[in-house]
Design a protein around this nucleic acid. Structure first.
Lengths: 208, 208
DNA sequence: GATTACATACCAACCAGTCGGTATTTTTAA
DNA sequence: TTAAAAATACCGACTGGTTGGTATGTAATC
């Protein structure tokens, strides 16, 4: 008998449906009825598991953190010996994820926070936690890469990790505007070039 | 008698109200009734000027292009002699615009395209036109800066101009998540650093 | 036997959009 | 020059469908 097949109850079916539906249509345009229909559950089940729609939004952001957290934790870029290669590998991995249609590769919390930061503080906070904790997974490698090169710049590992997230989020917006991933891939290439130049410049010791 | 005082009719009052309300609450959460109340006009006036809500969304994106287009056209960064200084001046200008509360400095079309790219193609196209035409205003200076340094890189002026927009849009998302402009300013600093490194590296001729 | 997990029917508020009507401006024409 | 005519700009009550949310009931599980 398999250890645990994660019986799909109404709650997890709703959360999974929320991830794709909110990414496609946005949080506000996602109605409870439609979400229940997509998840194959009834409205009664929805309001049994979530006090209201906003609580689903918070839970969706947390679910997103878990799903993507597992994805990135298992990704191969962690295997590089050089910490800078791990950061660049992270970006290559993100670029490789640009597959399928636009809602398939864009970010739930980046989409949600735009709509909710002024109207639903609880959702905004959940989105912030998701983005910030993901950015934090890069900080150790950035710091190690700085230490290797004895850099003492006027920016912090945290600010660079957040900048990387900003570029990714912005790349998704452009991809939505243009209807395809190409512009996002190009932007990620520019970001990779920045990191390469930045750490090359910082580590460069002038040869007399 | 003054030449023209631009009598505020219902249409322009609605468009002005739309710019701030949609930036604060998003497109979907902005109701026609609320918008009319904020603009001080009636619902009849709304549907006299706009066939439906989506048509207002398109008109709002175009209005945004006009307002911001005039702002950037009149900005002082165009006065620099060096084209790279003009691009860096543009970024400094964008950073200086990070004043007031978050909805005051974020971008209407970046917000709208997230919600509408799948549900309202007409609005999505209008947002794309707004972003792309704004990016295009940077291309000539980028190209001139490349020419000055005899660069022949594997990226185009268009891709760099779009990357700049991506960083700005992403910076706004992070500002919304964190509730303030600091993280956006930091990201713009990283972008400025990228441009500096990029054009320094490209123009560098090794001294033997 | 009691708490959890769902299902069904229902509701009040709200939503985009309509419609008949009035005020104002512009066009036409005597 | 001006008055009639026509078009535009705006008003506000109304509507029908939708929305988030509730009340009540039942089946499964601990």
């Amino acid at each position: 008998m398999p250890a645990r097949i994660a019986k799909p109850n109404a709650r997890s079916k709703l959360l999974d449906a929320a991830l794709s539906m909110i990414r496609a249509k946005g949080y506000c345009a996602t109605t409870v009825d439609e979400l229940c229909a997509a998840a194959g559950v009834t409205k009664g089940a929805f309001f049994h598991h979530f006090k209201n729609k906003d609580e689903l939004g918070v839970a969706a952001a947390e679910h997103w953190s878990e799903v993507t957290g597992a994805l990135f934790a298992a990704a191969p870029y962690h295997d590089h010996a050089d910490p800078l290669d791990r950061v660049l590998g992270y970006l290559a991995f993100r670029k490789a994820l640009l597959q399928g249609s636009v809602p398939d590769f864009t970010c739930l919390v980046g989409t949600m926070v735009q709509e909710t930061y002024d109207t639903a503080p609880a959702i905004r906070d959940a989105c912030d936690r998701s983005i910030s904790s993901h950015a934090r997974t890069l900080e150790a490698d950035i710091e190690a890469a700085m230490r290797d090169r004895a850099m003492s710049p006027d920016w912090t590992p945290e600010s660079l990790a957040l900048h990387i997230q900003a570029v990714l989020q912005g790349a998704f917006i452009l991809a939505k505007a243009k209807g395809g991933p190409q512009v996002a891939a190009d932007s990620m290439d520019h970001l990779t070039r920045y990191l390469t130049l930045l750490f090359r410049a910082g580590g460069e010791i002038p040869n007399p």
